[in-house]
Design a protein around this nucleic acid. Sequence first.
DNA 1: GCGATACCCGGAGGCCCGTCCGGGTACGAG
DNA 2: CTCGTACCCGGACGGGCCTCCGGGTATCGC
Lengths: 127, 127
Amino acid sequence: MTESAPHAHPVDPVRVTHARARLPDREEVARLTGVLSLMADPTRARILFALDLVEELCVGDLALALDVNEDAVGYALRLLRTAGLVVNRRQGRVVFYRLADGFPAPLRDDCLRRLAVLAGDADPGGG
Amino acid sequence: MTESAPHAHPVDPVRVTHARARLPDREEVARLTGVLSLMADPTRARILFALDLVEELCVGDLALALDVNEDAVGYALRLLRTAGLVVNRRQGRVVFYRLADGFPAPLRDDCLRRLAVLAGDADPGGG
DNA sequence: GCGATACCCGGAGGCCCGTCCGGGTACGAG
DNA sequence: CTCGTACCCGGACGGGCCTCCGGGTATCGC
C-alpha cells in the first residue's frame, strides 16, 4: 500500500498547522467551487460575458450572439438561473435574461473582466 | 423540431451585434474556462488556498493539511503543474510545491482571496 | 378556435473527470 | 548494497456533465 500511511511526521508542522487553521471551511469551498464550476463552461462563461456587456438579452438573441443552438443556451441558463447568477424578465413570449442583482460585484468587476485579459495574456499553460 | 430555426429576426439586433463584436474569442474563452476548471475542484482549490497561505508545502504535508489521501493530492498537483499554476522544488526525497511565479497575480489577489469571502458571504444560490 | 412562435422540461446517451489500486523510480539510512 | 520512504505514473471503475431529442405550456396573429 502506497498511501495508507501518510507522513509519520509532518515535514513542516508549523506550515501544516498554519494552513489547517486558516483554510476556508469545506462547505465554503464547496460554494466557491460551485460558482467556479458554473463559470468554467464555455457557453455559460460567454453568456455571462454577453450579459455583462449588454445588460439584457432574450434566449434566442443569446443563441445568435454566441452562435450556439437554443438547447445549449437553455440548459446553460437553467443552471445559471438555478444558481441565482442570472434573473429573467418575461415580456410576451420572449424571456429576457440579465445578471442577477445579487451577482457578486467583485466577481464581476475584479474577476470576470480581468480573467478575460488573463486568458489571452498570461497563459501559464506553457508548462 | 424545436430549435433548428433560431430567430427569424433577432429581437434586439443592436445588442446582439454589440455583444458579438465585443465577446472574447472562443479560444480565449477556452483558456479562461480551462483555468476556471482547474480551480473548480475542491481539492485543487484548497491546494491553491494553502499554497497562497504558507507559500510552500510538500506533497505529504499538503495531504495532511487538507486531510485527504496522497493520491488525490498527487493527481491534483499533476494537473496544476501541467497547467503551470504550481511549480515544484525537490529536496532529497521530498518535493515541495508552491504557486508558480507566473501564477496570475490578479487572479490571486483580486479573485482567489476575494472569492473566499464571496463564498461565505454573497451566496446567490438561494434562488 | 387554430396555427405558429418562444421557451421550458425530462429522459437517454456519450464523454470527461476524479478516485482507487497496482507498480515503478529517486533518494537517504545503515 | 539493501531496505524503506516519498512521490510519480498508468490503467480500470464509477459518477456527473453536456448534448441531443421529444413533448409540453404560454403567448401572439388571424
